[in-house]
């Protein structure tokens, strides 16, 4: 196998992982009838807090946990406004997209000052490094040279798939997204499920953001999420609201990201920006090609008012 293709596959897995966290975050949210376009913003604050805690403690794992925590906190604002106050979900998601990155940028300025020198934190070590394996075989690299976050991402996909299709709790959860009033008459706690969805979504989106500063890049810069939160939204649509579909979609978008990075390194005659456009153009083309079929949860985007029967 040529090294170009081998590197491409390895990069695909690395670039798909943060998308998997973000897309699963959105999947849990939409399955409970909530459309949250604010995951880009939650990922931004998760990315910063993950970076800071990882830098202070020297332990990237702690950074990821902190990213999840702050993601939950920020998403609770969204939860209260959309579930309890019945604010429009799209509009409030946008408010979170404006609020959370501003907060992240502010904290960074205050904590690190405005010095131009970028602070660097440790990255999470891979299983291969932890086991001290020396081999440079492709399959060793593919299966062992990954950070724990990658394994967690793929395990979460399997868990989510089983949860939504094979368990009673998962079916109840989906009922809230499909037809909340019927779910309520069956004794399912609709409001509680929606809040739970926001906790899960916040944690996963925060972790997805933290991935970028604990597993991918040693530095934090404003705007480092670079639209991944929105590509994750596309991945949920492209994956038809199922866990395996979302995985395939994330691998595809991860591949596009990997491809642009590899092509930039190989080619020097075209401006590099052409290659950087690939993931964004691919998202547009995929959505356009998918056409008018609609599949998502039926009540997604609708406010749920207990009083209205």
């Amino acid at each position: 196998m040529s090294s170009f293709i081998a590197n491409l596959i390895l990069a695909t897995v690395r670039m798909a992982s943060p998308l998997i966290f973000l897309a699963l975050a959105e999947l849990y949210e939409e399955r409970a009838g909530l459309v949250n376009i604010g995951i880009e913003g939650i990922a931004a604050i998760g990315s910063l807090v993950g970076f800071m805690i990882s830098l202070i403690s020297g332990r990237p794992g702690l950074g990821v946990l902190a990213g999840a925590g702050v993601g939950i906190l920020v998403n609770m604002i969204y939860a209260y406004a959309t579930i309890s106050l019945c604010a429009e979900q799209i509009v409030y998601g946008m408010a979170i997209n404006i609020f959370a990155p501003a907060l992240a940028a502010f904290i960074y300025r205050v904590y690190f000052g405005s010095g131009s020198e970028l602070v660097q934190a440790n990255l999470m070590i891979t299983l291969k490094q932890a086991l001290g394996i020396q081999s440079d075989n492709f399959f060793v690299n593919l299966f062992l040279d990954q950070t724990p976050m990658v394994y967690i991402a793929f395990l979460l996909v399997i868990f989510t798939g089983i949860f939504f299709t094979k368990t009673r709790a998962g079916l109840n959860y989906k009922a809230v997204g499909e037809y909340p009033k019927a779910a309520a008459t069956l004794g399912i706690n609709v409001i509680g499920t929606k809040y739970l969805a926001c906790v899960i979504c916040g944690a996963l989106a925060g972790m997805g953001g933290a991935y970028l500063t604990t597993c991918y890049s040693r530095t934090y810069v404003d705007g480092n999420i670079a639209g991944r939160g929105f590509i994750a939204l596309a991945a949920v649509i492209f994956g038809r609201w199922s866990a395996p579909g979302v995985l395939i979609a994330c691998l595809f978008f991860g591949f596009c990201d990997a491809l642009q990075i590899r092509l930039q390194l190989v080619n020097s005659s075209l401006p590099y920006q052409f290659f950087q456009m690939i993931p964004y153009l691919a998202t547009i083309i995929v959505l356009a090609a998918m056409g008018i079929r609609k599949a998502g949860p039926k009540s997604a985007g609708q406010p749920y008012r207990k009083e209205e029967r």
Binding site: I37, G227, F230, L233, M277, I284, A288, K294
Partner: peptide, 16 residues
């Protein structure tokens, strides 16, 4: 004509 989500498309076009 394709009933696509205009939010995602317009954001992607921002980056492009």
């Amino acid at each position: 004509y394709r009933a696509q989500n205009e939010m995602i498309i317009t954001i992607m076009l921002n980056y492009v």
